[in-house]
Design a protein around this nucleic acid. Structure first.
Length: 471
DNA sequence: TTTTGAGTTGTTCGA
DNA sequence: GTCGAACAACTCAAA
């Protein structure tokens, strides 16, 4: 009798190595690999444009690694999985869990439907180091503060599982599909803005592994301090690979542990810990993407200002470090972590625009757009989240630029019209003497915009706004 | 139940 | 230039 056929439903685990569900499927029989592009319900945060672009290339890479046998379909899994099972004589389905609220609920419904249809269904943990429902305080409730969550709840509880190798034997079932099935999903944009993103990324599992190895060799040794400087190549840039599961957090965790880089390893582990914390919060507080965790923020006096929002989105605020960040996002699909805080603080505090506007723009533009990370991050910046930034922490984009981009390499790369300004005025051209401006070829209001707000008075306005919701 | 210590990433001002 | 305090009060975690 032939080996049984197991369906492996790929979701956010687009890799062969350290893939628990796939590993087990390969051990048990022949594997029918499937990807389904689903219709996301309203409010479910359908993928943004940058994510769709990334997914297109990730699927092509994965399909190539599976000898073209990845079955790529769009539609409803409740219908597709049983049909594929019938067509290929399969009685068993595997997947690795996803943690978006709508998907969690939907998956438990699916599980029952598939069982009713006579399928054996198994789900695995392929994308988190600790399951959100397993990390709880002694009283059984979830942590809301990062330090005890990570230190006590995670580190003292269990060492993350060691990564699994690629399946030794991976026998595939199903026909060769070719790349047209992926093209038919229509994930690429009609206007080809994606071309500028391409040189920045090597999408897919091999690229993710390269990226990890390079980070461990070059970035990790100075990570603890270096990660704060956007002009230096010390951050990992693994976030999109982790989001799509081209790399597992276990692989990243243990690679950094093996490097024995002391405080640098600890710092990188803590960053992975923040990713865990975000998923933990989203699991226990599924309203995180749209509702202030601190409900007194429900009466915060946000401003509607479409013009300022548009300038922020386009990188035309007239505040150089903010514009550099927003243009990095647009040009590469990514933004350095420190600059995310600077542009976030500027939108929410200096412009008093609702954090959900920033969240939506990031969701659309980031190649690492992740519901858990993104919503936790914006609530943190706005001060309304769990363990959030205090209201008086308002970043000064001039000091931040001077401190973290001291030679201006980052700001000059993305705001080239200011490149010839001396360091002294690079972050505050509105204060530069006329002579300095003309020597640098800068004409305020023409070659570079005037600031959209005055930093000092908008800071005071923000403090006043926060004062209205005290107590 | 009560108490105690602590909480990612800052800025400004005045001595 | 450097340093410490103020900026608030609240909630969380754990004993």
């Amino acid at each position: 009798m032939a080996d049984p056929v197991i369906i492996h439903w790929f979701r956010q685990d687009l890799r062969l190595a350290d893939n628990p569900a796939l590993h087990e499927a390969a051990r048990l029989g022949r594997v029918l690999p499937v990807y389904i592009l689903e219709e996301v319900p309203d409010g479910g945060w359908a993928m943004g444009a940058a994510s769709r672009w990334w997914l297109h290339h990730a699927l092509r890479s994965l399909a190539a690694r599976l000898d073209g046998r990845l079955q790529v379909v769009s539609g409803d899994p409740v219908e597709i999985i049983p049909r594929l099972a019938r067509e290929h004589g399969s009685g068993r389905v595997h997947w690795n869990r996803c943690y978006d609220p709508w998907r969690l609920g939907r998956d438990s419904v699916l599980k029952n439907r598939f069982k009713d249809a006579g399928l054996d269904v198994r789900s695995y943990n392929g994308s988190l180091l600790w399951e959100p429902w397993e990390v709880l305080k002694k009283d059984g409730t979830p942590y809301k503060v990062f330090t005890p969550y990570f230190g006590k709840g995670c580190l003292q509880a269990a060492v993350p599982r060691r990564p699994l190798p690629c399946p030794e034997r991976l026998e595939l079932a199903g026909p060769v599909e070719g790349e047209r099935a992926i093209d038919r999903l229509g994930l690429r944009p009609k206007i080809r803005w994606d071309l500028q993103l391409e040189p920045h990324w090597a999408i897919g599992e091999p690229g993710a592994q390269d990226r990890l190895e390079r980070f461990i060799a070059e970035g990790l040794p100075h990570y603890a301090q270096g990660r704060d400087f956007p002009g230096r190549p010390q951050v990992s840039r693994l976030s999109p690979h982790l989001h799509f599961g081209e790399l597992s957090p276990n692989q990243a965790w243990h690679a950094a542990a093996a490097a024995r880089a002391g405080e640098n390893t600890a710092r990188f582990h803590a960053e992975l810990g923040w990713r865990e914390f975000a998923h933990h919060l989203l699991f226990h507080f599924p309203e995180l993407p749209h509702t202030n965790l601190d409900r007194k923020f429900d009466r915060f006096p946000w401003r509607d200002d479409d013009e300022a929002l548009r300038r922020w989105q386009r990188g035309q605020t007239g505040i150089p470090i903010v514009d550099a960040g927003m243009r990095e996002l647009w040009q590469t699909g990514y933004m350095h972590n420190r600059i995310r805080m600077v542009v976030g603080s500027f939108l929410v505090k200096n412009l008093l625009i609702h954090w959900r506007q920033g969240e939506a723009w990031f969701h659309d533009c980031l190649v690492d757009a992740d519901l858990a990370n993104n919503s936790m991050g914006w609530q943190w910046v706005a001060g309304c989240g769990a363990d959030a930034a205090p209201y008086f922490r308002i970043f000064n984009p001039v000091s931040q630029g001077r401190k973290f981009d001291p030679q201006g390499a980052y700001t000059r790369r993305y705001v080239p019209e200011l490149a010839r300004l001396p360091d002294e005025y690079l972050f505050n051209p509105w204060e530069a003497p006329q002579e300095v401006l003309s020597n640098a070829g800068v004409v305020p209001g023409e070659t570079y915009p005037h600031p959209v707000v005055d930093l000092k008075s908008s800071r005071e306005r923000a403090l006043a706004a926060y004062a209205t919701i005290k107590g």
